[in-house]
Design a protein around this nucleic acid. Sequence first.
DNA 1: GAACAATGGTCCGAACCGTACCATCTAATC
DNA 2: GATTAGATGGTACGGTTCGGACCATTGTTC
Lengths: 169, 169
Amino acid sequence: MTPLTQTSYVVMGLLGQAGEATPYDLKQIVAATIGNFFSIPHSQIYAEPARLAKAGYLTERRERAGRRRKHYGLTAKGRKALEEWLSTPTEELYELRDPGLLKLAFGSDPRELARTQLAGHEQKLEELQRMARLLQVADPSEGARLVAEAGIGHQKEYIRFWKKIAVRR
Amino acid sequence: MTPLTQTSYVVMGLLGQAGEATPYDLKQIVAATIGNFFSIPHSQIYAEPARLAKAGYLTERRERAGRRRKHYGLTAKGRKALEEWLSTPTEELYELRDPGLLKLAFGSDPRELARTQLAGHEQKLEELQRMARLLQVADPSEGARLVAEAGIGHQKEYIRFWKKIAVRR
DNA sequence: GAACAATGGTCCGAACCGTACCATCTAATC
DNA sequence: GATTAGATGGTACGGTTCGGACCATTGTTC
C-alpha cells in the first residue's frame, strides 16, 4: 500500500503545473515558491517521485546518456488523485515550528532575539515581494499569486511583532 | 553522541520552567501553550526525556508504586545546555506546513477552501484569546504572553486573508 | 586541458511519526 | 461493594522522514 502524504501531493501538484520534470527541477521550484509555506527537505524530493512512480501515479523516463536524469510526469491515475485532493477543502490548519518564538517563550532576552529575527524576516519579505512582482507579469495561476500575498502578509505581521519588542524600553 | 534537537530544548525548556515533571505533564503543557507555534507529536514527548536522561541532561526518578510514573528534572549539565541555547539568538526562521495554502497554490477552488479554512482559524483565534486572558492573570513569564500575542496576530492575518478571498465575486 | 563552479543525484543511520494498545486511578451508579 | 466508564498516564513498534555527507557529470574560465 502506498499512502499519499502531503509530500506526494506537492510532487504531483508541481508536475500538474510543470508537465514533465526531473526531481532537480522540482527542487528548484519548491525552493523558489511553495517552500515558503510548505517546507520539504531535498532528500524527500528525490525519494518521493520514485515511490509514486512505483505505485503508478507517475511515469518515469530515464535519459539514456550523459546524466541519465529521470523525468517524471503524471499518469491518469496520478492526475485523478491530484484532482480529487484538490477538490476537497482541508479543515486542517498549519503545522509550525518557529525556533524564535520558542526561545522567546522560554525566556531568551527578547530584544536581542528580536534584532536577529527581524533581520531574517525583513530579508524574507523582500524575497517574497520580488517573487510577487515576477508573478504579476509572468504567472498564469491565480493561486500562486494569492499564496505569495499570504506569505507577505505574515512576514509583515512578524516584522510588526518583533519590531514592537525591539524598540521597547 | 547525543545531538540536541529542537525537541530536546522544548523538553528542557519546559522543565526549566516547571521544575520536575512527568512526560504527561509536559504533554499537557505543550498542548496548551507552545504547541501552537511549535508542534511535537506526543510520542516524542515521551521518548525524548528518556533519551536526554541517558545522556545526562536530566534526572529520572521513578515512582515505586502505583502508576510508577517517571519524573524528570534538569541536571546541572542540562541547565547549562539550556542556558547556552537561550542566550544565542537564532537566525533561523520558521518551518511551516500549511495544507490550505498548498491547495490554493495548486488550483483548488479558492472560495470553498476559504470557507473551510476561515472556520478553523476563527476557532483557533478564540482559543488563543482565551489562553491569553488566562496568562494575563496567571502567568509570571513575559515570554509566554508575548508568544500568545504573536499567535493571535497571525490568526488575525490568516482571517483577513481568507476573508478577502471568501467575499470576492 | 586543468581547475572550479554549478548542476544533479544517491545513500545512510538516526530521529521521528502515527497509531494502536495497555495499565492505573477515580468516582459515579447500582 | 462490584461494575463500569472515563480520564489519566504510558509503552511499543515498524515504516517514513530527515539532514548531511558524499559522488558524478557538465559548463566555464584561464
